[in-house]
């Protein structure tokens, strides 16, 4: 990684290592703005600052967002086009998922993406957890149909409210439900929020078939995970 730039915007220190990886360290506006080094996050000036920022980038911060290019390797890399989808848990963990594995109207299956070239399952972060479900294709919204394989749709398995796993399924309404605060999402319509406190829909993952197996057709559309008030940890990255 090379250090390209730093910017200061309204008390937000953005450390930009590459166009793909942006680390935002949010501090109180006054602290960063006056640069009095009172705060541990206050960044020293000139050369010292550059060394620190370079070090920040060099360690990669072990964050999943630090590598986002399509096809990037690494267990913490987000799903990329052509990744295969494999079972995340259970007796078949790691096995590729075929459409027939998902019965119409049954609860979601948890999956991880797998790099088709290396066979590496991208399970290095739970932010890569994907929920797959098979719903009536006739009921899909136009946008959701464009991402689906027949009635099979895929979304981030992490709730946008406080980050819990989307493990529950309401069979009466065919909706995802978060077990923590009962936010409900409609898988037929972009996983939009239809109940509970979640602020926005689950990130959607476009699907396609490769050799009869479910595969990723593109990056997550939307934000993965939740947002801490006053701090946008994944801002600008589209995850």
């Amino acid at each position: 990684m090379t250090l390209r730039d730093t910017v200061m915007v309204q008390g937000v220190m953005a450390v930009q290592c590459t166009p793909e990886a942006t680390i935002i360290a949010r501090a109180t506006g006054a602290q960063v703005a006056d640069e009095q080094d009172k705060s541990p996050l206050a960044v020293p000036r000139s050369g010292e600052r550059r060394r620190v920022l370079r070090a920040l980038c060099a360690v990669g911060l072990a964050l999943p967002m630090a590598s986002r290019a399509q096809g990037a390797s690494g267990a913490a890399s987000p799903p990329a086009e052509n990744d295969q989808l494999v079972f995340a848990f259970g007796e078949r963990a790691g096995e590729a998922i075929a459409p027939d594995d998902l019965a119409l109207g049954t609860e979601q299956v948890f999956a991880y993406p797998m790099d088709p070239l290396t066979g590496e399952v991208r399970n290095g972060t739970r932010l890569n957890q994907i929920v797959l479900v098979h719903v009536d294709p006739a009921g899909l919204s136009e946008q959701t149909r464009a991402r689906a394989v027949d009635g099979i749709v895929a979304y981030s398995g992490v709730c946008t409210h406080t980050g819990c796993d989307i493990t529950d399924w309401d069979t009466s309404s065919n909706r995802f439900q978060c077990p923590c605060h009962e936010s409900q999402f409609d898988p037929s319509d972009g996983a939009r929020v239809v109940g509970g406190p979640a602020p926005w829909q689950l990130a959607a993952l476009p699907l396609k078939l490769v050799d009869g197996l479910l595969a990723v057709a593109g990056e997550f559309e939307g934000r993965v995970g939740f947002m801490q008030p006053g701090l946008d940890p994944l801002g600008g990255l589209g995850r």
Binding site: R26, P64, L127, G163, C164, G225, F226, Q228, P233
Partner: peptide
């Protein structure tokens, strides 16, 4: 700041 992958 909470870890990115926390379940709150």
């Amino acid at each position: 700041q909470m870890p990115f992958d926390i379940r709150l």
